[in-house]
Structures are given as C-alpha cells and as structure tokens.
C-alpha cells in the first residue's frame, strides 16, 4: 500500500505541527502590530487543524475532520469580528500598535 500512512510516521506530523504552533506563539509574543498578532493566531489554529486531520487519517476516524470543519467556522467568525474591532479602534487611535491600546488597563 503506497500511502502516506505507511511511509511517513505520525511523529513527523506531530513535530511539524508543534513547530508551526511555536512559530505562532513566537509571533504573538514578538510583534506589536495587531494584524500580525492575528495572523500568528491563525497560524496556530491551522497547525492544530493539521494535527487533527493527521490523527483522523491515521486512525480512519472522520470525527477529527468534522472537528477541523468547526474550528474553521469559529476562526472565520473570529477574524470577521476581530478585524472589525481593529478597524474601529484604528479609526479612533490612528495606530495598530497594541502597546498604545492599553487603555482598558485602568
């Protein structure tokens, strides 16, 4: 059987998704531009989606792929709301630097 299941061990997928997730974490910590922080969050969501799909394919269980579908639904809603909030705050503060947005600190 010439398939990805037999030729690539699942640990390769776990390592790939861990690396992508950590790059996303690094982006959230490193950057101050709120749009790049959003993109890093998207990267983390996608790495987890890929791991779900890999486990679903390796164990022949479709539940994992259904869950990825719902993660995509939530991510799309989150991005629509998040970017609306970014545009609104940018209209008031004229910046996308998260350090300038610390007014809620009190």
């Amino acid at each position: 059987m010439n398939s990805i299941i037999t030729s690539v061990p699942i640990n390769s997928y776990i390592l790939l998704c861990t690396t992508l997730f950590c790059i996303g974490v690094m982006g959230v910590l490193l950057r101050r531009n709120v749009i790049i922080i959003f993109m890093s969050v998207e990267l983390m969501l996608n790495s987890v989606n890929l791991l779900f799909t890999a486990f679903s394919a390796y164990s022949s269980n479709p539940a994992g792929q259904i869950f990825v579908f719902f993660v995509m639904v939530v991510a799309a809603a989150e991005i629509a709301i998040g970017l609306a909030i970014v545009v609104m705050i940018h209209r008031n503060t004229k910046t996308v630097d998260v350090n300038e947005w610390s007014k809620l600190k009190g």
Partner: peptide
C-alpha cells in the same frame, strides 16, 4: 515552516 517564519 519557512513561510511561517517569514510571516513573523
């Protein structure tokens, strides 16, 4: 991985 690093 390369393009994810370039994103950040």
């Amino acid at each position: 991985i390369f393009s994810a690093l370039m994103v950040v």
